[in-house]
Amino acid sequence: MTNTALQVTGVTKYFGGLAALDGVEAAIDAGKISAIIGPNGAGKTTLFNLITGVYPFTVGEISYQGTSLKKLPAHKRTQMGIARTFQNILLFPHMTCLENVMVGQHTRSRYGFFEAALRLPKSRKEEEAVNLKAMKYLNLAGLGMKAEQDAMSLPLGQQKLLAVARALASEPSLLLLDEPGAGLNKLEKMELSDLIRRIREMGITVLLVEHDMELVMGLAEWIFVLDSGKKIAEGTASQIQRDPKVISAYLGEEVEYVES
């Protein structure tokens, strides 16, 4: 028996008159790599935003390890072990790579205003620990050499890896990755796959939104397919590839690509 880490039940989210999500059900298994795929505008990012508390939702329920997330503010969900990356990366500019990852450690150190202002020993000890941990996650993403560089000076591929390292630094049990492969070249995508597998080996549940089918099919043990806010299929890679509903949803998208 596998147990469910994240349970999404009947979640519906309207933006104005548009249902970005419509009665979505999903059970994400603990310790596995799962993926959400679907055409542009299917509601994938919206689902991430509801899980992490960027937007509130009223209809349906999302629970993590049996606890409802509905009323928790975003920052408390991090403390419960949920971390994410963003489709548009959102690194912190004017901060080095190391500092970016150190922010990720925010919930893992406690000292506050007072200890910081007076530089009490507690603050210095914790700072050292944070620094070491951050270096560890930077190295994990292969960016140890870039520690002192400004985050925004990295090429896109490394920025994406840095965002993963930053999220990992919060020491999550569930990691949500929103299109980590977008804009990466072949080699970078291989490195990314490798990193994601290592994250899984660390015992972290991974939920991935991705358009690159090769990447998804190679990594994901379970795949959910969204289209226009509805879940139209779920299953293993081979089940999904044969599903006529999925094929027609993607055929529709390919026509759009040709037009644009």
């Binding site: 991090t78 963003f86 690194l91 919060s170």
Partner: peptide, 11 residues
């Protein structure tokens, strides 16, 4: 830098 990213890291 980014309020959304900050909140996602527990700030």
């Amino acid at each position: 830098g980014s309020e959304a990213a900050s909140a996602s890291l527990g700030i």
